[in-house]
């Protein structure tokens, strides 16, 4: 981690990291004044906020719905199946996306075709990229994320449910007044962690989903760091970009944590 000083130096292979001359903020300035800066920042934020908007509430809804089901077997089956995609590797996940969304023979376009809709080149269309990324991510991780909420729901005091029943609460009222407060602490913690990761969304999947047609919306900070740093061997510049990313993340995390502490008394520390 101390090698991060590289961001403030002019890296020279022969002199090594510590021997290279200091250049202060040169690479940060270079990055901020680079035309890609705006695009990268916008893409990174757009994708992760979209993911947060879809990926945060859906597991909660799933857990609340599962909690209403009293039949043990149905509940177990739904849980087992929705949890399973989590174990598919990124590489396989991306290839599944590609097979399913292929322009002519992908199953999705075949279904659209039978409904009389023209085939869509999902991965070649920059406007579709975010949705493809976000919804496949939700597909893969909703069941996994729901587990924490289910556990929180299992820990709700049963006497609260009895009281709600005696008071004649409907199911919906019971969910809203008993279940939701019950999972709120867990939800706040997870929200904090998610916001703290806003700038570091999965490099692995986006990098694999990228193609020349969709880079206008799919190039994010971490893929850019990889390309500039390791593929073009521009170490100092890439380190500066990466460091910028980390600092933003830390600031976001601390801010959200502070806000959460104020508003709901739940926080990471």
């Amino acid at each position: 981690m101390f090698n991060a000083v590289l961001a403030f130096k002019d890296y020279n292979v022969i002199k090594g990291i510590w021997g290279s001359p200091w250049v202060g903020m040169k690479y940060f300035n270079l990055f901020f004044h680079n035309p890609v800066f705006g695009t990268l920042l916008k893409n990174t934020l757009f994708i992760s906020l979209y993911l947060l908007a879809a990926g945060f509430p859906i597991p909660i809804i799933l857990a609340l719905a599962l909690n209403e089901v009293k039949s043990g077997r149905f509940k177990r089956v739904v849980q087992l199946v929705t949890y399973a995609p989590y174990f598919i590797s990124t590489v396989v996940m991306v290839s599944i996306i590609m097979l399913f969304l292929a322009p002519n023979l992908g199953i999705v376009n075949m279904i659209l075709g039978s409904l009389g809709i023209d085939s869509i080149n999902f991965l070649g269309n920059p406007n579709m990229f975010r949705s493809v990324y976000v919804w496949s991510e939700v597909w893969q991780s909703a069941g996994y994320s729901a587990v924490i909420y289910l556990a929180a729901l299992a820990g709700v005091d049963p006497s609260l449910y009895e009281a709600a029943r005696v008071d004649g609460a409907s199911r919906l009222q019971k969910i809203w007044n008993v279940d939701v407060p019950g999972i709120l602490p867990a939800a706040v913690i997870i929200l904090i962690l998610n916001v703290g990761n806003v700038m570091s969304i999965g490099f692995e999947k986006i990098y694999l989903l990228q193609n020349p047609l969709n880079t206008t919306t799919s190039e994010i900070i971490s893929t850019y760091v990889y390309k500039i740093g390791l593929l073009n061997a521009n170490y100092s510049f890439a380190t500066a970009v990466g460091l910028f990313n980390s600092v933003i993340n830390l600031i976001l995390l601390v801010t959200v944590n502070f806000a959460a502490k104020r508003l709901s008394k739940n926080s990471l520390w």
């Binding site: 981690m1 101390f2 090698n3 760091v225 740093g229 390791l230 380190t239 990466g242 990313n245 830390l250």
Partner: peptide, 15 residues
């Protein structure tokens, strides 16, 4: 702290 903040890809690679 290392979980919340990392030097980034390149420094790790160089190590």
């Amino acid at each position: 702290f290392t979980m919340l903040f990392s030097g980034g890809l390149i420094p790790t690679y160089l190590v």
